[in-house]
Amino acid sequence: MITAALVAALVPATAMAKDTPPPADAMKLSEVISALEERVGDELSHIDEIDWDEDGYWEIEYVRTDGAQVEVKIDPTTGDARN
């Protein structure tokens, strides 16, 4: 029962973090994607997934033309990849 209560207490906190929107001065998502496409260039096969990370970054998963899967975190205000 303690485990169930702990899980129930953590779920709302996690949901709240996920529901936090990008900051007001963030670039449009289309601009972030365009910057990524330009940066990766001809090596980009396709973008597989885009998700807003609770740490305040766009988390983008893409596949290169050689089949490698890449995950990057992008700063929403600058469009720069986070290391």
Score class of each variant (00 low, 15 high):
1 M>C: 07
4 A>I: 11
4 A>N: 11
4 A>W: 05
5 A>C: 12
6 L>N: 03
6 L>T: 07
7 V>L: 15
9 A>L: 11
10 L>Q: 12
11 V>Q: 11
11 V>D: 04
12 P>D: 07
12 P>L: 09
14 T>V: 13
16 M>Y: 13
16 M>S: 13
17 A>G: 10
17 A>R: 14
17 A>Q: 13
18 K>C: 06
18 K>W: 14
19 D>T: 07
19 D>A: 14
20 T>A: 12
20 T>I: 15
21 P>E: 08
22 P>Q: 08
25 D>F: 04
25 D>Y: 04
26 A>H: 04
27 M>E: 03
29 L>N: 02
31 E>Y: 02
31 E>M: 08
32 V>S: 01
34 S>L: 08
34 S>A: 15
34 S>W: 02
35 A>N: 15
35 A>Q: 14
35 A>G: 14
36 L>F: 03
37 E>T: 10
37 E>I: 01
38 E>Q: 13
39 R>G: 02
40 V>H: 01
40 V>W: 01
43 E>R: 14
43 E>T: 08
44 L>Y: 03
46 H>N: 09
46 H>T: 04
47 I>E: 00
48 D>A: 10
49 E>C: 01
50 I>A: 02
50 I>P: 00
51 D>G: 04
51 D>N: 12
52 W>M: 11
55 D>V: 02
56 G>R: 02
58 W>P: 00
58 W>I: 00
59 E>M: 06
60 I>G: 00
61 E>A: 06
66 D>F: 05
66 D>E: 08
67 G>C: 07
68 A>L: 07
68 A>Q: 11
69 Q>S: 12
69 Q>I: 13
69 Q>Y: 06
70 V>T: 11
70 V>N: 04
73 K>F: 15
73 K>H: 14
74 I>T: 07
74 I>Y: 00
75 D>E: 15
76 P>A: 05
78 T>C: 12
78 T>H: 11
80 D>R: 09
81 A>W: 14
83 N>D: 15
